[in-house]
Design a protein around this nucleic acid. Structure first.
Lengths: 178, 178
DNA sequence: ATCAGCATGTAAGGCGTTACATGATTCA
DNA sequence: TGAATCATGTAACGCCTTACATGCTGAT
């Protein structure tokens, strides 16, 4: 396990729940995981090959008509690697929050610009909050199943923090007006 | 302005407030900005040279004893570039939150592991929250000055969201116990 | 004297994004 | 028939981190 990119972990985590193609993995990431981690095809497909070389996943091709489809399955070794990563308590949380950079340096321009940047952020947060609330609502009744419990907790984390963001936006806008 | 790395903006933003050396810039980032954006020497020094080539900053060397020191000053062109960036409303907010990845995939291990990962996160948040509260307290009385107002708002953002994180940790821990 | 902090830089490597390249299928 | 979606991949590039390299200064 020389290579240990985080995208490897994302893939192993998803495959631990269900078998997926590279295309499916991208969809799963875009649906839920993108709120705290991203992935791209240029990232996922090479990672799948690396994981297979290391025998952490196993692929099986199926041909539907003329369309080739490669479905991946996690191996025992892959499960072990995932569990080992979960057991390591240190975690690196890196943010690149351009919005906050814009607030922090807003003094270089006028208040209208600062205000507008907050509004844009607010609108984005509002939209994502709706999505997160939908996720949470969908997971609420099935959270007895262990995997879903954690998806529920993650969605809740998003809802809680995004609501805090919105409250902050209100406060900040008031201060800029006053 | 062919090159427009975000680190350029961070540097311009800091220099817009005061003249600084590369070393000072690193310190400012580590003190306050690191909560939403990072920088390293291997990042900052080359960026300063690029900014100077593009005439967005101007350097002046001073020799204190035998120690060379290069202080940077923002130019009118640099201020314009900073203002132009502030005027663009789109902002890319990228997160890489390994902690949330660990929660999301926690079903692959046992509840004790999930619980422990939350506790570790909680402890880190608690420590950073103290720092953010100190910042906010220090900025509170001087926030009439426009630059400080925005530093205050940014610190407040941190305090609010970190408090939301802690509340979530409590909830999550209860759910895992119950 | 020695160690932490001041001060500036370079080089290699890692990891990710974007754009490109290709083609099938489904639905309006 | 044309657009959206399914499906897999490669190549170039961008940007950042880590480690390395060097040397001064001030405090204990």
């Amino acid at each position: 396990m020389a290579r240990e990119k985080k995208i490897h972990i994302v893939i192993l985590g998803l495959l631990n729940h269900e078998d997926l193609t590279g295309y499916d993995i991208k969809k799963r990431i875009d649906e839920a995981i993108r709120f705290f981690w991203n992935g791209s095809f240029g990232n996922i497909y090479p990672a799948l090959k690396e994981l297979e070389e290391d025998k952490l996943v196993k692929s099986s091709s199926a041909t539907e008509g003329a369309r080739e489809k490669i479905t991946y399955h996690i191996t025992a070794k892959g499960k072990k690697a995932l569990d080992a990563w979960l057991g390591k308590t240190q975690a690196s949380n890196e943010l690149r929050y351009e919005t906050l950079l814009k607030i922090f340096f807003a003094g270089a321009s006028d208040r209208e610009t600062a205000y507008r940047n907050i509004e844009v952020f607010e609108e984005e947060v509002r939209q994502d909050l709706n999505i997160l609330k939908m996720h949470r609502r969908a997971l609420e009744p099935i959270k007895e199943e262990e995997d879903h419990l954690y998806y529920y907790l993650t969605a809740s984390f998003g809802v809680d923090t995004y609501e805090a963001y919105l409250k902050w936006c209100e406060k900040a806008k008031k201060m800029l007006k006053g």
